[in-house]
Design a protein around this nucleic acid. Structure first.
Length: 571
RNA sequence: GGGCCUGUAGCUCAAUUGGUUAGAGCAGAGCGCUCAUAACGCUUUGGUUGGGGGUUCGAGUCCCUCCGGGCCUACCA
């Protein structure tokens, strides 16, 4: 038994996430957490809402609410949706928690002690009308290169030229449209990542078998141009973690907060502390996951994230932890994902394009989405959601291959033998061959799940289900029953055990349907099967079962057409 | 502009990292079965691996080039 720490990239607070966000981190992390628990490992699975930054403040203003209230409400909404998708977090925290305040300030203090923080005065654009400094991309104006009149202060979307806000002609605030802008001097803290470049480079090199997507992005940042740059870790905002050096004031930094980029990953640790607090445990309960001097040296730490988050997790967060000089647990494996596209374009939170978590649950149960999203996870390249593909996969894989198998077995038994495992007969060569085939495929499934190869795992699981249908077709108990009812009884006894076997191994993908399967088998023993032979002799003759409701209702062409129309425009 | 990823059957994806005849699922065609959600099983039709060139005994895999798709480029997070 191992100890496995799993974190999912933190969903940002400013609205409900779409299916692309879900499949890029939280859902595969949940699959791995569920599988790891099923194999008997001790798991700590952490996620949280990422609540700081300019977009959170703007979203709150748009909603007409104080930002703290807005974040609290949106956290509850996201937590409820996470439960709806059966995401099995041990704790779903908040980056605005007191734990994160304390830990972020503590780490900043340690970094300062280690000489890894510098203070830099710089000029930034301030909007008098908005009463705030504007990030580059919140300034709009006319591009000096191509004349496009909605160029942003970081880049012109029309001609792709890199810009500085002061390059823009007739600059205005993208928030209010005000042209009452001025350049002000302001002082910020920078994390001296450049001092740690070699250390980070060696650390990346020492990792084995990380996805190429992960290492190539890290290497690019380490070596491109002048190499890894220092990075600002504070902002002139009201909402956030006040800049402090541990528990001390930080002279000259009054009224400033840490930048969301700095405090968000620290929340992984703080959320584990929040978990301990919620459970009524003392600090040692979370420290044994995060401090290698306090019990975390045998922990395997796996992070899940979309590719856009890779630089923060391969460079920024490790620099923070290494630079503190304290023995924090560093990540062992980073599983990163490409993007899921929606019907020929991108999912977009800002444009409301695609299917969002609340909408998805409103039309179909979580298992349908979990199965499709995981079996099509964008691992090697971007992948695409289409309603046609979704309908075909769900109907064929879930309803026909698995759901119908459960249905045909339980209904046949009820009509011929009653609602208990029938007695008589024995397993022979055909059953032995099935068990061999199941074992072989089960081992492949386990290997792929342990390697977090999501799509291959899904394909293995489906192949395991198909073996059940092949067996039934070959054994044909409905035919055998006419001449040798005892032999048919043995075949059906095996098939009913097979349902329980499938419930156990399929649970990480489809937790609700497998719960129904297990309940129908009148059983509560979820222990992972050592072998197919063990699993298929688990329930004995005479054991009562019931015929479950249809596990998966098919998606009709009418459903599909309706949803295509419903989600074709903007949210 | 620079960097990285990517292009394989009508569709979604594989291919043990350079090694026999490029494989699965879906869709299509045919047959079988009748327990079951018109479900299941078997057989089968689909590929000049984006185009061109090169290295090699051997290339989907490595190199060059062209074409297409995507991401990142440090103040969105």
């Amino acid at each position: 038994m191992a100890r496995i720490l799993i974190t999912s990239a933190l969903p940002y607070i400013n609205g409900i996430k779409h299916l692309g966000n879900l499949v890029g981190s939280q859902l595969p992390a949940d699959l791995y957490a569920r599988y790891s628990r099923a194999r008997g490992h001790e798991v700590m699975f952490i996620c949280a809402t990422d609540e700081h930054g300019t977009p959170a403040e703007l979203a709150a203003a748009k909603a007409g609410k104080p930002v703290a209230d807005y974040c609290a409400e949106m956290h509850d909404v996201q937590a409820e949706l996470a439960r709806g998708f059966r995401l099995s977090f041990d704790h779903y925290g908040r980056s605005s928690s007191q734990r994160n305040h304390m830990l972020t300030q503590h780490l900043a203090g340690k970094l300062a002690d280690a000489g890894l923080i510098s203070e830099v005065s710089e000029k930034q654009v301030y909007s008098n009308a908005d009463g705030r400094f504007l990030p580059d991309r919140y300034i709009e104006g006319t591009c000096p290169n191509c004349g496009y009149d909605r160029a942003r202060g970081d880049q012109c979307e029309n001609c792709t030229k890199q810009l500085a806000p002061t390059d823009l002609i007739n600059p205005r605030s993208a928030i209010s449209g005000s042209t009452d802008l001025e350049v002000r001097e302001t002082k910020h803290l920078f994390l001296r990542q450049s001092n740690m470049r070699d250390r980070l480079d060696q650390w990346i090199d020492s990792q084995r078998n990380w996805p190429i997507l992960t290492t190539s992005i890290a290497k690019k940042w380490l070596h491109d141009g002048d190499g890894l740059q220092d990075r600002g870790i504070t902002r002139d905002l009201d909402w956030g973690i006040p800049v402090r050096k541990g528990t001390e004031d930080w002279p000259g930094m009054e009224g400033k907060v840490f930048y969301v980029w700095f405090d968000a990953p620290i929340e992984y640790i703080a959320a584990t502390a929040e978990w301990a607090d919620a459970q009524g445990f003392d600090d040692s309960a979370w420290q044994r996951w995060w401090r290698t001097d306090l019990g975390a040296d045998d922990v395997r730490y796996v992070q899940f994230m979309g590719k856009d988050n890779v630089p923060f997790h391969t460079l920024g967060f490790p620099a923070t932890l290494m630079g503190s000089g304290e023995p924090w647990k560093l990540v062992d494996y980073i599983k990163s994902f490409n993007y899921l596209n929606y019907d020929g374009g991108q999912f977009s939170t800002s444009q409301g394009r695609g299917v969002f978590m609340d909408q998805a649950l409103a039309i179909l149960p979580a298992d349908y989405w979990r199965w499709w999203l995981l079996s099509h996870a964008p691992e090697s390249s971007d992948s695409e959601f289409t309603w046609e593909n979704f309908q075909a996969s769900v109907n064929k894989d879930l309803a026909d291959v698995l759901g119908n198998l459960v249905s045909r077995v339980t209904k046949f038994c009820r009509s011929k033998f009653g609602e208990a495992l029938p007695e008589g007969g024995s397993y022979g060569d055909r059953e032995a061959a099935l068990m061999d085939a199941l074992n072989t495929r089960l081992r492949a499934y386990e290997t792929h799940m342990e390697g977090m190869e999501i799509r291959k795992s899904a394909a293995d699981l489906r192949a395991l289900w198909v073996l059940g249908n092949e067996y039934l077709q070959d054994a044909a108990p409905w035919s055998v029953f006419k001449s040798d009812p005892e032999q048919a009884a043995a075949q059906i006894r095996l098939a009913l055990n097979l349902i329980r076997f499938y419930a156990i191994i399929s649970r990480p993908f489809i937790p609700d349907a497998t719960a129904s399967m297990m309940a129908a088998m009148n059983c509560d023993d979820w222990s992972w099967p050592e072998s197919a032979a063990d699993a298929l002799t688990h329930l004995d003759a005479g054991h009562a079962f019931s015929v479950p409701d249809v596990l998966f209702t098919k998606i009709t062409d009418e459903n599909r057409a309706d949803w295509e129309a419903q989600f074709s425009g903007q949210r």
